[in-house]
Design a protein around this nucleic acid. Sequence first.
DNA 1: TGTACATCAGTGAACGCGCGTTCACTGATGTAC
DNA 2: TGTACATCAGTGAACGCGCGTTCACTGATGTAC
Lengths: 231, 231
Amino acid sequence: MEATMATEGRRYHHGNLREALVEAGLVLARAGGPDALGLREVTRAVGVTPNAAYRHFTDRAALVLAVALRAQERLAAAMVVRMDEAGREPEPARRAYLRLRALGLAYVGFAMAEPGLFQAAFVRQGESLDGGEPNPPSPSAAPPYQLLVTALDDLVAAGGLPPQHRADAEWACWSAVHGLSDLLLRGPLHLSDAATVEHLAGYVVDRAIDGVVAAGAGGPAKPSTPERATS
Amino acid sequence: MEATMATEGRRYHHGNLREALVEAGLVLARAGGPDALGLREVTRAVGVTPNAAYRHFTDRAALVLAVALRAQERLAAAMVVRMDEAGREPEPARRAYLRLRALGLAYVGFAMAEPGLFQAAFVRQGESLDGGEPNPPSPSAAPPYQLLVTALDDLVAAGGLPPQHRADAEWACWSAVHGLSDLLLRGPLHLSDAATVEHLAGYVVDRAIDGVVAAGAGGPAKPSTPERATS
DNA sequence: TGTACATCAGTGAACGCGCGTTCACTGATGTAC
DNA sequence: TGTACATCAGTGAACGCGCGTTCACTGATGTAC
């Protein structure tokens, strides 16, 4: 092949249509969230026939999933940038703490700065209440999750989190920042101004970290018998 | 009027079509989430012409909103039941603590037991990325929110939460349980078995309460300059 | 008590739309000999 | 180096569908006199 996907583009053979569709999907998702990822709309954006997409994706859901994975990578990239900015501290425990904190703030910050991508990244791994095919990627292989796990492990290694408090800490942390993001985007906080968002993000992240670090320390003694979690 | 909406039903005049539409909407949302709330589908369920709905709702969005509010009431009712179950403890601080804990567990429990209603309750107050009309009800008048605020106030009054830690505590708590619910329903935890769900719900709720009660106590000292929350 | 009439709450048919997907096809690519 | 041919990656037209909404209407209600 000679310069198939080269400078001018737009031949009969596109060169790398799959990549172009995912890229166009990101642009559309950025503006309109996952619902904007119509198969016709994405192919239209690339300037190609709707069914050309079927050479590269089995159906619309596969396209949406590919865009979701790419959006997750963008989220992870934003998290890495913020963590590195925050990691100048020499003292290891404090450094690990600041990196974890930056990770949380980056999560919420990404949700606010890129609501469409954030929501597209979160289209459920295997649809929802309707059909329910298996589910494509391994449950927790997502890059953002890996960063969180590593940040918590680092905090333990640096002495900032007791090892016996490490188990499941990622779910407490992820729940807090994810929940706040959703409350800010689709929930009762969706009218908040920038200052409030900033304040709440810092507050919620700090409380989440406090919660796992000081596990069991605060408040009255726990009940001896566990409560039920489902009705 | 004589027995307009009485036993036999199905006359020309329905009697209370608005109520019937909302009720049918709840049934549909329960099975299929907010996307199942098509205007045609809801009217079909009631056995009425699609545009009959326009006598009671300005458009589909208004119907969906009405169903959302009703779903919120159901969530609140489930929370009240659980709180009262948990409130047998005589000692006030511990009692208030157990009630708050039960509230959180009830939130997650409702999300798991009624995923369709839970998601319908959460259709954003004013749509999302597209148009964006004002937003109908006051931001935080939702019954579940009021219960949470009251539970935290009670915990302060009972001496279980220092007053200086009260501010914004509802957002830390709500973020935690809401985030966990979303991770369980649409996120990486959506394959979890019942035992895991139960364990995580208890763990996350406890860490959230610990976080607000022991605010600032755990981990390295906070940075003196606040971090930015948006990119 | 009985009738006229305004008001209300539904019907029935149609509008325009965009969607995901399938079919039979053709233009371009690149490899074998 | 040149040609035949299998394979690949697109086209173009059409499918059936269900949606939200609008129009002009009619059947039922209940009130005024």
